[in-house]
């Protein structure tokens, strides 16, 4: 989730300014200096991995489309569904977004707004928890699992 270029650059700065000046062993110092060069080259020879975000985008799109359809079918359960129209419009607008990170963020924002609306409805109708919030969590869990699989 951190920008690759910035992370490599800052790691190198930390090596140069914090770690190397404290190293007293000559061999360790040589290795650390070489590591700076290795990291710079590694940065230039690799590209940002955007495939997890593409997977996430597909999952979020699938989830939102399912939710919008379900809301349409259950409209009687809700005090008002004005907010659904607004969310659908925002969703439609994401079609034109090319930048993967930007698209992922906007789609996430729509999911967040959906959750907030469901909690508002749940104050009035506690069945929303079971029929909407719990199933929605399963979908968000799938997204989270993709993110978690990339952390060491």
């Amino acid at each position: 989730m951190l920008d690759k270029k910035l992370t490599f650059k800052t790691a190198n700065q930390a090596l140069k300014e914090i770690i190397i000046p404290e190293l007293e062993d000559g061999v360790a110092k040589e290795q650390a200096i070489a590591l700076i060069s290795v990291l710079k080259n590694l940065d230039m020879w690799t590209v940002e991995n955007i495939s997890p975000k593409e997977q996430l985008i597909a999952k979020i799109q699938e989830n939102l489309e399912e939710q919008f359809q379900k809301l349409e079918q259950d409209s009687g359960q809700f005090s008002s569904l004005d907010w659904k129209g607004s969310l659908e419009k925002s969703y439609k607008n994401t079609e034109g977004l090319v930048d993967v990170t930007e698209k992922w963020k906007v789609l996430n924002d729509i999911q967040c707004q959906l959750i907030q609306q469901l909690y508002k409805e749940n104050d009035r109708n506690p069945e929303i928890q079971e029929s909407y919030i719990t199933p929605l969590r399963e979908k968000v869990r799938e997204q989270l699992n993709i993110e978690m699989s990339l952390v060491r």
Binding site: M1, W104, K105, N108, D109, Q111, C112, I115, Q116, Y119, I133, R137, V140, Q143, L144
Partner: peptide
């Protein structure tokens, strides 16, 4: 990034 897990938790 807007985070559905955290928004859920805060709500």
């Amino acid at each position: 990034s807007p985070d559905p897990v955290m928004v859920d938790a805060l709500e």
